[in-house]
């Protein structure tokens, strides 16, 4: 459990694991959307159309997931910066 000791260490691991989840979220949403459309087509008998529509929805949902994850990582990154550099607000004032 070496990576539970340092606070900074833990946050880096946290970010690393968040980054590791992005790719599969994108792919899985696409496939779930496609499977949704496939079975709806089978049920309603509207052969190719619902599959295509739900596939596109799945892709949109996947990219939405990626955007949300990125926002989470950015927020965590800001927090980490503030922790390492003391208060981050003073730096921003100096820059502007």
């Amino acid at each position: 459990m070496a990576f539970f000791k340092g606070d900074r260490h833990r946050e880096i691991i946290d970010q690393l694991s968040t980054a590791g989840t992005i790719g599969l979220h994108l792919v899985c949403s696409t496939f779930v959307g496609m499977a949704f459309g496939w079975y709806l087509d089978k049920w309603l008998g509207t052969k190719p159309w619902l599959l295509l529509v739900m596939l596109i929805f799945g892709i949109i949902a996947g990219f939405r997931n990626v955007i949300h994850e990125m926002q989470r990582i950015q927020q965590a990154d800001k927090k980490l910066d503030q922790k390492i550099n003391g208060t981050g607000h003073e730096d921003e004032k100096n820059d502007s």
Binding site: L24, H25, C28, S29, F31, V32, F36, A61, G62, N65
Partner: peptide, 14 residues
């Protein structure tokens, strides 16, 4: 609603 249901169902899969 459709998008959220898809992304929620994708969670156990991923």
């Amino acid at each position: 609603l459709v998008l959220e249901i898809i992304s929620h169902l994708a969670r156990p899969l991923s």
